[in-house]
Nucleic acid binder design. Sequence first.
DNA 1: GCCCCAATCGAA
DNA 2: TCGATTGGGGCG
Length: 817
Amino acid sequence: MKSTFAQIILPLNLKGTFTYKVPAELAEKIEIGMRVLVPFGGKKIYTGIVFDLHDQEPDTFAPKEIINLLDDFPILPKEQISFWDWLSKYYLCNIGEIYRFAFPSSLKLESETYLKLKPGVTIDFQNLDVNEMYLIQALEVRQLINLTEIEAFIPKKEIVKTIKSLIDLQYIEVDEKIAEKYKAKEIAFLKINEEEVSSKSLAQILLLLKKAPKQQELFLLLLEQHTEDPEKTIKKSDIFEDGNFAHSQLKSLMEKNLVLEYYLQKDRLQTYEGEIEDLDSLTDAQLEAKTEIDKAFEEGKNVLLHGVTSSGKTHLYLDKIEETIEAGKNVLFLLPEIAITKQIVQRLEKKYGKQLGFYHQKLTDFERVEVWRRVRNNDLKILIGTRNALFLPYQNLGLIVVDEEHDSAYKPREVSPFFNAKDASQVLAKMYGANVILGSATPSVESYYLAKKEKLAYVFLGERFGKVKLPEFELINFKEEQDSKKIIGNFSLKLIEEIKKEVDRKKQTMILHNRRGYANVVECESCGYVNYCSNCDVVMTYHKFSNEMKCHYCGQKASKPNACPKCNSENLNVRGVGVEQIHEEMVKIFPEAEVDRMDVDSMRKKFAYEKLYEKLEDGETDILVGTQMISKGLDFENIELVAIPRADSMLYVQDFRAEERAFQLITQVSGRAGRISGEGKVLIQTYNPEHSVFQLIKENDPSKIYKHFLEERKKFLYPPFVKLIMIELKHRKEDKVNRASQFLGSILHKYLPPECILGPEKSPIGKLNLMYQYQILLKLPRGKNYSEYKNLILKSFEEFEEITAYQSIKKLIFVDF
DNA sequence: GCCCCAATCGAA
DNA sequence: TCGATTGGGGCG
């Protein structure tokens, strides 16, 4: 079936898709999901994606022609196209924005697109115009040329026309092998050549090396490591690290065929190091959970796996992953951030080797393209990755695991398009007919609710692996301790006593304080002046360690004033406790102990995290003070006490999820305590020990605390009982954005019931990065009406956009805010 | 989103 | 006065 027109997705933040004409010579080959080159605007050429093919001639404009196809086969599976379509509709964003996010940039080259002469053509220069001649001549000199370079000798407006006509004449073509130019970074390893070595006796070999003692030494070192553990890899660079051996010695050994060199891809490096433990068989509790998961999958339901810390969720994931692979399907394992989860990677690596891939935000574009290609060729069976791994061109997806599903990193607010990877993964799975496991020790309230409503199958693992006891919680009434003067700084004597006990018996203690810097505010005692960020409507935080003031929102730095810039008084006071202050106090109270700090500021240096991790592992660190960073990935046997000296600071945040977050954070850090011994203890210091959240955490009964959260959400109309859509308007001029938000509010009032609309009002942070921000919060009822309301919102936006004066206003929409 | 063009701004 | 910045419109 030949179609004459195509709807093309362009990598631009513009509404909808664009209509192009399919030239007759491409009509046979073009398919949905292929990349195409198309002109757009005066002079630009973009790589677009075929979204749809049809025969409906547009009547309001004359479509341009597609220049060429970039693929022989659709690069994007139809499941992904439906997924993109769903995302753009659900999250009210443009499909082009999703395309930009989903594709590695070298797969959607614009001006970097390369042209070359068709091999073996004879060119009839008589019939070429001057631009065409220039281009041909340039290509004769240098085989490949890109669009930016063409701009140097052809007028911008003529570029597209010139290329098109030369392609039509079959003189030139687009270089289609772009992706194949990339090679993933590889690292050299060494191994003993077993064939050669086993054919001779050791004495023979040593005789051979008699005159080269250094070679002999190196050979014996490699042989020793090999016999010790044949599975263990030997990195080439490690051999030369201490300067004991020279490259020439290794070269000679390789020439004698005793040692071989081989290469492995860099990003799978850590997986080849260290021991690989065999999995224990599933415990009774795990077996029961597994049966429940199987049953849910049979019924076509996704699973919420609620397993308390160290209950062995990973074990169950592995089990299902292996089953999926054996059934010939692919697996996606999603993590909130790319922190290597050794346990799972090692196991999968051992079993699936080269069929395991990684995909995350830290890869270079080369590496991304490489993974892309291998997924498309179905060479990779398992992908471990962050939210952007949802967009790989899976051929046969069978299972998606979303680990730590409650984590807010699955929907960062800073990068567009805004979507929640946890929810999106379930839609993607539906497109492929795949199953989903959402796993967490502290599920989000939304997922818990869906499980209670039986939209998700709820599988609970209530006991730690090996029946190890869960940590005990104790509340310390800081008010009382303060009144009876039994405190030092932010610590009660009681808490200090407990930490001291741990230090004395060489156990490690974790102290959580989730606030960066030293102090929130530097304030002048005489005139009350506080230091605001010049770009944002936010006070700057004092960082004592680096001795500067930082804005945590825009990153701006300033030096700390010695005197008040307003009244010159030197009476500057600090207020609000940051993690640096907690760290400082611990150092003072425990001068002999090794006290370390872990937060984004102290971990900025290269390898800072690795170094501290080693210190913790080796037991050198006695007390670790940190922000939420310490709640993830630090599983050490020797930690038995977790302390939270200022627990209240987590609750008094303007956010309806504050209590949920506090519960999740406290539970996650508490999971670090007593993983093996079962002697874990968590001390929560608070002014409000009666606060329901602390009481419920202390009780440690998940069903009760979720019941509490759900009641609160219901009472104050928050998710999951309503759908939230946050609209944020931004502009450099405050009066303009204020008027615009009033106007948009009035349009919305025309279409939506008044109780659904909150605002417009100034955002909690009224100015960010020199942009003033106003917001409108929509609380919409769930169910049938929701999609109807959403259409009305779209209609409101259209009306709003008709006002030309408001077009310069940036509009951000957060669905499921 | 990016480009073009016109209008406006601001330092000489 | 001129060059630099900002706003608005269009793109298939």
